[in-house]
């Protein structure tokens, strides 16, 4: 499904990824781990480019539009499913059926009372949930997230992550917490300084292995 062989990537003159060879097949749930600056975000965007149409993306810069309501921000995940006219009219007055869909998503996210609040009035954790909501409303088989639950409290992060993973057949998620990586994913890829330093089935490793990855950096 996603393949990279000897891929490199640089940001301006700064080289970010070196010599990456990867193969991710359908149905896999992959966690990307590594210290910040290791190249996780760049790797995600490289992978995203291979199949942008089928991916529900939840990047670190959440891309929330501050003055639009939570409803519209989540609706943005579905823009490509509807016609331009339908989208523009929705901006003026939300369609009743879409409102139902999105209210349901908000309920799951614990944002039921915030449907028509704008994100600039929300806390960091709430904003992150809106960004997750947008990815859910993409309704695509593949989920790619970049620290999608980092601002949530551990319990809530844990349950939302399982919810998100349950709804997508394939997932690639950069994640900071070794516990979450081991608990929710089938495979863990560790990055350091732009190189893959480990690629294990979750069954083969422990939390301690991953903690080493962070410590070595």
């Amino acid at each position: 499904m996603f393949q990279l062989s000897n891929a490199s990537f640089s940001h301006g003159s700064l080289s970010v990824l070196h010599d990456i060879t990867l193969d991710i097949v359908e149905g896999e749930k992959v966690a990307l781990v590594g210290p910040s600056g290791a190249g996780k975000s760049s790797l995600l965007s490289l992978l995203w480019q291979q199949n942008p149409e089928q991916v529900a993306l939840c990047p670190q810069e959440s891309g929330l539009v501050n003055i639009l309501s939570v409803y519209q921000n989540i609706y943005m995940g579905g823009l490509s499913r509807f016609s331009t006219l339908y989208n523009v009219l929705n901006l003026i007055r939300p369609w009743a059926s879409r409102k139902r869909d999105i209210a349901a998503i908000c309920q799951q996210l614990g944002l039921s009372d915030k449907l028509f609040v704008s994100p600039d009035k929300l806390s960091g954790g709430q904003r992150q949930r809106v960004a997750l909501g947008r990815a859910l409303y993409r309704q695509q088989p593949i989920f790619m997230g970049d620290e999608p639950v980092s601002s949530l409290d551990p319990e809530q992060g844990d349950s939302l992550l399982s919810e998100v993973l349950a709804r997508h057949s394939t997932a690639i998620v950069a994640i900071h917490s070794p516990e979450l990586a081991i608990k929710h994913f089938d495979r863990v890829i560790a990055l350091q300084q732009g190189r893959v330093i480990g690629d294990w089935p979750t069954a083969d490793i422990s939390v301690a292995t991953l903690e080493d990855v962070y410590r070595d950096a």
């Binding site: 965007s45 942008p52 993306l57 823009l79 989208n87």
Partner: peptide, 15 residues
């Protein structure tokens, strides 16, 4: 801007 930003008219109105 996000890499998966919409395009065209929708990009203007929503983003």
């Amino acid at each position: 801007q996000r890499i998966d930003s919409a395009s065209g008219v929708v990009r203007y109105f929503y983003q």
